[in-house]
Amino acid sequence: MAHQFHIFDNGAALADALAGRVAGALADGIAARGAASIAVSGGSTPKAFFKALSSKELDWSKVTITLVDERFVPETNERSNHKLVAENLRVGAAARAKLVPLYHAVADAEDAAMVATGDADRIIRPFDVVVLGMGGDGHTASFFPGGNNLEQALNPKTRRSVITMDAEGAGETRLTFTFSAMQDARLLVLHIEGAAKKPVIDQALAEGAASAFPIGRVIANAASETQIYWAP
């Protein structure tokens, strides 16, 4: 599918613009269907965006937030995306939003993925908003190059919403939404910052569906146009 680039001078300007765009999409979802859903990514990049979005005037009680991916760690862990969202997005008025986790305190990550799939399948779909990130290795969500379940994660015919991923660059075992669950979001965003990531996304876009970078395959094959928000 096609993509659009939105380039900003700095991260603060990007965060403000993206928060406005996302809040508008969530408001549209609430107006049209009485509820809205958003899946967000973790890491350090989205903190300013989360804080800007949390200040937007919305009927947050009608918004469901979930995570694009998660480490198999409890929400008290400093590496938990759940913790990041709870402390930076689900604050103030936005605390009224429902947060659907991927991690569950069960025997192992596979069991957690099954529970998370059941929870995810009760969220209104397609998502109103999905905000992806990208690592320097071209991974997005937990679609890591060399990941043990990478092809299943990227296959548009995969029926499960959440699967596990182990990869050399991942650290802990991951839980991740599959491509099939996210690729038709009404607003599909890639949020990236840093000069070093620009050549990676440029190469991924040039290579398209044949790219060695998972993000290139995601953008090329998604049903929705990807809005790429980048700042150096």
Rank of each mutant, 00 (worst) to 15 (best):
I124F: 10
E57D: 14
M114R: 12
S44F: 09
K157D: 14
A107D: 14
A86H: 06
V63M: 11
F72I: 09
L53M: 04
K56H: 14
F144A: 04
D59L: 12
V100N: 01
N77T: 01
K98Y: 02
D108K: 10
S55I: 03
S80P: 12
V73Q: 05
S161E: 11
N148C: 15
G43K: 04
L154K: 11
S41P: 02
V115R: 12
T164Q: 10
V162R: 01
A93G: 07
I65H: 09
E87R: 00
V91L: 01
L154H: 08
G147V: 10
G138R: 03
A113T: 05
V100K: 00
Y103P: 01
K157L: 15
A116L: 08
F127M: 01
D166I: 13
I163Q: 01
A153I: 01
N155F: 08
P145W: 00
A48V: 02
A86T: 09
A48S: 11
G146W: 13
P156H: 00
L89Y: 02
R71D: 12
I65T: 07
G42R: 03
E110M: 06
A120F: 08
L58E: 02
H82I: 05
E151K: 03
A113C: 05
G42C: 03
L84T: 09
D119N: 11
V85F: 11
E78Y: 10
R79Y: 13
T117V: 07
A153Y: 02
A105Y: 04
S80V: 02
N81M: 04
Q152N: 14
G136A: 07
T164M: 14
L99E: 01
G146T: 11
A97M: 06
L102M: 03
V131Q: 05
I123F: 05
E75R: 13
G92F: 09
A120E: 10
T66F: 12
V73T: 08
K47I: 15
D111V: 10
A109Q: 09
R125Y: 06
G146D: 06
A94P: 01
D59C: 09
A112G: 08
E110L: 13
I123W: 12
A141C: 13
A109V: 10
R160G: 12
W60F: 05
S142P: 08
A109I: 10
L53Q: 07
P145C: 11
D69I: 12
S55T: 14
V115A: 13
F50M: 03
V73G: 05
A153G: 10
I163K: 05
E151Y: 11
I163C: 05
E78L: 07
S61A: 15
R79S: 15
